[in-house]
Design a protein around this nucleic acid. Structure first.
Lengths: 174, 174
DNA sequence: TCTAACTTTCACAACTATCTGAAAGTAGGA
DNA sequence: TCCTACTTTCAGATAGTTGTGAAAGTTAGA
């Protein structure tokens, strides 16, 4: 009788972790952070630092930094097991919640500062009423309004429960 | 009589270019590319390579590379003036069109490859029907479906004219 | 209080991305 | 054809990011 292959899903998981790490880079997220996230997202149980270090072949400092960073994003959380000193980590696994966390964070990092710049530029040139100065002012205004608008949409969607978002989207797509 | 200040809008523009460049980095776009884009977006007339080099204090190679890259994105286009050899560049200024271009490109770069990975992992583990293997498979499936769904929404929105997108959004927000 | 199990920090090393500038390539027109 | 005005390429330099590992810091409980 041939041997049963040893857990195909573990191989697939390995693949997932590696690829997700690589994707992270195209994406503005550092490789280790993406890998840790992938690892925890697919972990049946919470894991602690040394397990993660071994599994991903990374140093303690690196593991620690990226775990804190992921925790800052809200994508993983600290778990304490009673009677144990060490900290375990587990990832948020609900896809919709993950999406909302990421959307909020990206908004904060990408949109908020951009809006500041645009507002400033629009404000400074609001007196321009002819020629290229006026055109510049208009463009800043348009960009500002567009960004504000995008932020509103993002807030609205992020405030939705998964079910109502789905319903809304079905209407849009249908 | 005090001197009239020399074009406040030019100062504001300078600021915009500098800040936009800095923002680009938080954003996964390289600084020079973002600066060139900001420069052209606010240029009353098309510009040519040497002007851009001087204005941003960058080398010829750098200017050339990033201009081609922006052209590849479709965010700027080449303009030839009759009777002139050299190439001029001008940016797309319509905010909605810019948004659509960027959304499409990000989808292609960020979502398409991720989808590939997820599909692969889901496929490989579709036989798992118990324990952590099944959970893994489920998670890959969920992620896959979510990404596919996101892509559909993105396509739908990108196919809209500005006016209908606005109308749709007003309904969403109202 | 002391120890041991753990977490955090940080100077430096390794790696990656970006930029430069000079040389090579290209094409319009004399 | 050759010159000239331009564009493209690319090897090496620079700058920026991420990772390492050992030392310092923290805290629970003996």
């Amino acid at each position: 009788m041939p041997n049963k292959p040893v857990s195909t899903w573990e191989d697939s998981r390995e693949e997932f972790i590696a690829q997700w790490g690589a994707l992270g880079s195209n994406w503005g997220i550092n490789r280790t952070m993406a890998q840790i996230h992938a690892l925890l997202m697919t972990a049946p149980e919470p894991m602690y630092t040394d397990e993660i270090m071994q599994r991903l072949h990374i140093s303690r400092g690196n593991a620690n930094t990226n775990l804190r960073e992921l925790n800052g994003w809200g994508l993983i959380r600290l778990v304490v097991k009673k009677g144990e000193r060490r900290e375990y980590f587990e990832a948020e696994k609900d896809v919709w919640k993950m999406f909302i966390i990421i959307a909020k964070e990206r908004k904060r990092r990408e949109l908020d500062p951009a809006l500041g710049v645009l507002k400033g530029c629009a404000e400074q040139t609001k007196g321009e009423n002819a020629g290229p100065g006026r055109d510049f002012h208009r463009q800043m205004k348009e960009l500002q309004e567009f960004v504000e608008f995008g932020m509103k949409v993002s807030d609205t969607v992020a405030g939705m429960k998964h079910a109502s978002a789905l319903q809304w989207a079905i209407k849009l797509l249908g």
